[in-house]
């Protein structure tokens, strides 16, 4: 909807940027992410680990926002679905000797299937009820992972082979950034197509959407499937990065972490959460490591920030950006922030 200028008028660079759903400033941000491991103090291994976690939450928030920000359903089982993908992937590697790369993809597919099921059974439900259902679903999956000790070793944790046979965190970090970008691109291309219009319509007014000829079943189930498949792939990455998987990854508090980042970043923007995750989660990791005698403090901070944002700035960072930063007078700056549009 937003490309009003026909693509013939654009030079190849702008065309490419547009295809990649990036603005010049977005591209710069991406380059910066790739350069970060070479810039002190971020070149230290423990900082890289934090950054990988930032990237993980960033990518999760993009997938989460596809559902929360577009069809207006909060999937409280998101972390559980992600963990389900992670366990699937880990178990395939451990028990069947599959390569972790293939297993990650398989984790994505099974998690997508899980999303399909959640999407189907929550179809008749609106907003908060669908959210509750996805939450219960998530709790059930987590319960299974905890209780099926013979398969998952329960709370003892599952040792999982890593994606790269190295002590360095750098390859994991680069992979994470690539994954983040690909996930962003996939979601953005979907919402740019006419499907995005259908998502927004059923998310904003179900009755008017249906009266306009939109079949909500198809779009809702599709949305859940894609969003959960993304969570599953990321769950696989998580499993094969940390090398240990416990049912904790499925906990609702993980979903809340993702939700907080997505909302603070700005619902329905896709990029807001991805951008905010890096400073925000990074600071949270610092807080967690320096105040390790106060476990749970990070959750308190999440809640506080979330409440403040919800009350004073419900549009989140992306809304702030769109209203106050995106439209400067200066032409060059304007191009830098918007691209050729």
């Amino acid at each position: 909807m937003d490309n009003t200028i026909t693509s013939q008028q654009m030079n190849p660079f702008d065309k490419l940027l547009d295809k990649l759903c990036l603005t010049p400033v977005g591209l710069l941000g991406l380059v910066l992410l790739f350069a970060l491991p070479y810039i002190p103090p971020f070149n230290q291994e423990y900082m890289l680990r934090w950054l990988i976690y930032c990237g993980f939450i960033a990518a999760m928030s993009v997938g989460f926002d596809l559902t929360a920000g577009y069809i207006s359903i909060v999937n409280f089982g998101y972390a559980a679905v992600s963990g389900f993908g992670g366990y699937t992937s880990a178990l395939l590697v451990i028990n069947m000797g599959l390569s972790p790369w293939l297993a990650m993809a398989a984790g994505g597919i099974t998690a997508g299937f899980m999303g399909l099921i959640i999407g189907m059974i929550s179809l008749r439900l609106r907003g908060i009820f669908a959210a509750c259902l996805s939450w219960f679903f998530g709790l059930a999956i987590m319960g299974l992972a905890t209780k099926m000790v013979w398969l998952t070793r329960g709370p003892l944790g599952l040792r999982t082979p890593r994606l790269f046979e190295t002590d360095s965190n750098a390859p994991f970090y680069f992979l994470m950034v690539i994954l983040l970008f690909l996930i962003y691109l996939a979601c953005k291309l979907i919402v740019r197509s006419k499907m995005g219009l259908a998502f927004q319509a059923i998310g904003q007014n179900m009755d008017a959407a249906r009266a306009s000829g939109i079949n909500p079943v198809y779009y809702r189930v599709f949305n859940f499937t894609v969003s959960c498949a993304i969570a599953g792939i990321l769950g696989g990455f998580y499993a094969h990065f940390y090398g240990i998987l416990t049912p904790d990854v499925m906990h609702t508090s993980k979903t809340v972490e993702v939700l907080a980042v997505a909302y603070i970043g700005g619902r329905g923007s896709l990029w807001g959460g991805a951008v905010i995750a890096f400073p925000f989660i990074f600071i949270m990791e610092i807080v967690r490591s320096t105040l390790s005698n106060l476990p749970g403090l990070n959750l308190v901070i999440y809640s506080l920030v979330l409440i403040l944002v919800m009350i004073y700035y419900p549009g989140g960072f992306s809304y702030f950006y769109d209203t106050h930063i995106r439209k400067p007078k200066n032409k060059v700056l304007r191009y830098f922030l918007n691209g050729r549009k």
Partner: peptide, 15 residues
Amino acid sequence: SPFPKMTAIETVMTA
């Protein structure tokens, strides 16, 4: 109460 966050043209586009 059409689609609150959509522009006028997008609202009509859906139908």
